[in-house]
């Protein structure tokens, strides 16, 4: 007697596996991101510089610095804070070498380098092999898939700052996106 072969139950797992996509929330947790950020702050900004894990409302005028990670998980590690706080961070990094008047290049360099260090350590905590891009500074890159985000919100010197590890690929397919009842992908 031949056993009847039933098609596997469509749980969506096969599509996810086929896409080789794993959400960031199953790869890293907020506590790890916070520990990475705290270590970067202590080493780069100063031993007395604390990041307090209390969310605050970001001001309207923000600046972001980020690095891209490309590999089994692809996305960006994005630091966002108020423009004035980014300038204060720059002065804290430069210390006595800070010029009287900061220009955008100084802020981009300093804020970008913090993102580079945080991003490099986030990358090291993710499955590899991956490559890390050069730091970029500007308006925050859009969140492409809200479920593919691990974000922490902290205060530095009382000012809000967010670290977002966010997927950069288009949205994962959802069951109603797929016209094929057996879950086949085109």
């Amino acid at each position: 007697m031949t056993a009847v072969q039933h098609p596997p139950l469509d749980t969506g797992e096969r599509r996810r596996t086929g896409d080789a996509r794993t959400l960031i929330t199953s790869l890293i947790d907020p506590a790890t991101v916070e520990a990475i950020a705290v270590d970067a702050w202590v080493a780069l900004v100063g031993e007395e510089e604390l990041l307090v894990p209390v969310p605050g409302d970001l001001p309207a005028d923000t600046l972001s610095a980020w690095v891209d990670v490309v590999g089994p998980w692809t996305g960006s590690v994005v630091l966002t804070t108020g423009r004035q706080t980014a300038a204060d961070l720059t002065r804290a990094l430069l210390r006595e070498a800070a010029p009287e008047l900061l220009d955008h290049e100084d802020v981009a360099d300093a804020f970008g380098e913090i993102a580079n260090v945080v991003g490099g350590n986030v990358k090291a905590a993710l499955p590899g092999p991956s490559t890390l891009g050069l730091p970029e500074v500007g308006p925050a890159p859009a969140v492409r898939h809200p479920e593919d985000v691990c974000r922490i919100d902290v205060l530095w010197r009382g000012q809000p700052l967010a670290v977002s590890v966010q997927g950069a690929l288009p949205s994962l397919p959802t069951p109603h996106d797929n016209p094929h009842p057996n879950g086949a992908s085109l």
Partner: peptide
Amino acid sequence: DDSRVMRQIVIR
């Protein structure tokens, strides 16, 4: 280092 800030931090 391509970052001037990081060069200063390394030197410091």
